[in-house]
Design a protein around this nucleic acid. Structure first.
Lengths: 216, 216
DNA sequence: GTCTATAGCAGGATAGAC
DNA sequence: GTCTATCCTGCTATAGAC
């Protein structure tokens, strides 16, 4: 659809797909190039030919898979600001809803969250990329949307803490699926995801120090 | 202090300490036994002698380091229930406060959170242990403390979501330190940790659907 | 209980045929 | 671009001296 050229090389794309999946599931060190190339049904040497090495492949996973999706989230956040200035509830519901709907599948969202988490907890080269190209711009969009609803004397530093609290939940519920499933007895199906979005929205909306109640 | 025997073998203890630090920082696969034994100033073969192998050492880190601390958290949660039934605010402030104060140091708390996170996101053998011996009993204590303040018809399943939302923040703020520091311009010193505890408490307390306001 | 030495294997990377 | 074959490093684990 959005690839005007037939997206370069199908082998390259398959490697990126499988590498992302495996890196997200197991982490960089626990995945071998052999495992990736076997999953991508190509030769061991293909990783070096196309990317130059394992570490470079990891970075390219962020560049060509993670970032484009994060930017899609950014686009949809910008859409929120298009019409009338949104209410606080619309902003918070927008953030959670977008985060849970901007991805093509359950697994894609989970992988996205896990990769982010791994980088956040263990800052590496990829985090710089992620910071500059995704987190910072997206946070700024949210900031602008949310600021009118917060007390004017509230410091930016504090607002960040609120955003992190929302963020923490978005990541956690996508990452710690097994404990969540065990505790609630639910599967991550459409109905449960909708409940999660509702829960995170309500919890966060009430947690924010809004100027005049949750509906302004 | 609480080791009646001189805690077995000092080499064994040093290995457990360094192994925990390294596993928390880098993850199981990214740490080599050589790295651990070098850090513990002992011989490469000591890990096999004392624990039987790398994987077994990892499990023992949870058994002998992680779990005892989690159980200390549990003890302090039980203390909350000792006197008069605590208010909702006391419960939530208790949870966050205990989580931020039950550890001997900044680093210990960070390591604790990171190890938990790694296991949560990538369920392995250690998660069973963690679940049965720490997460489940501690959640049950909190449940009992919190239930009187929540609407009686609120399903247990929903209460778990609230607990997870609090939990998510506790883990996130201990794990994603670099982004938090960058965004706020703060160090994780005593003052900032106190602010974090206050923030998580307020945010979560307001997020809960309390029966009659945050102070009952 | 601690060490050295080494077996045995899996890892990333590369050279060179096709 | 893709493959096979291979190099070489670094890993876990163990045997056996002390």
């Amino acid at each position: 659809m959005n690839q005007t050229q037939p997206d370069h090389d199908p082998t390259r794309e398959r490697i990126l797909d499988e590498a992302e999946r495996l890196f997200a599931e197991k982490g960089f060190a626990a995945v071998s190039v052999r495992e990736i190339t076997a999953a991508a049904h190509c030769n061991l040497a293909a990783v070096n030919y196309h990317f130059g090495g394992k570490q470079a492949l990891y970075l390219d996973v962020f560049r060509h898979r993670w970032l484009p999706r994060a930017q899609k989230v950014g686009e949809r956040l910008k859409d929120l600001a298009k019409g009338e200035p949104p209410t606080a509830e619309e902003v918070v519901r927008g953030i959670t809803g977008i985060f849970f709907s901007a991805f093509a599948s359950e697994q894609e969202r989970q992988r996205h969250a896990m990769l982010m988490m791994r980088e956040l907890s263990q800052p590496g080269e990829a985090l710089e990329l992620v910071f500059k190209e995704a987190i910072r711009p997206n946070f700024e969009i949210i900031m602008r949307l949310l600021k009118p609803h917060l007390p004017p004397q509230l410091e930016t530093q504090k607002i960040f803490l609120y955003l992190f609290s929302i963020f923490a939940q978005l990541i956690y519920f996508n990452m710690a699926r097994l404990p969540v499933m065990r505790a609630t007895g639910r599967e991550y199906d459409e109905a449960f995801v909708a409940e999660l979005v509702g829960h995170i929205t309500d919890f966060s909306l009430n947690g924010l120090p809004l100027r005049s109640g949750p509906n302004t």
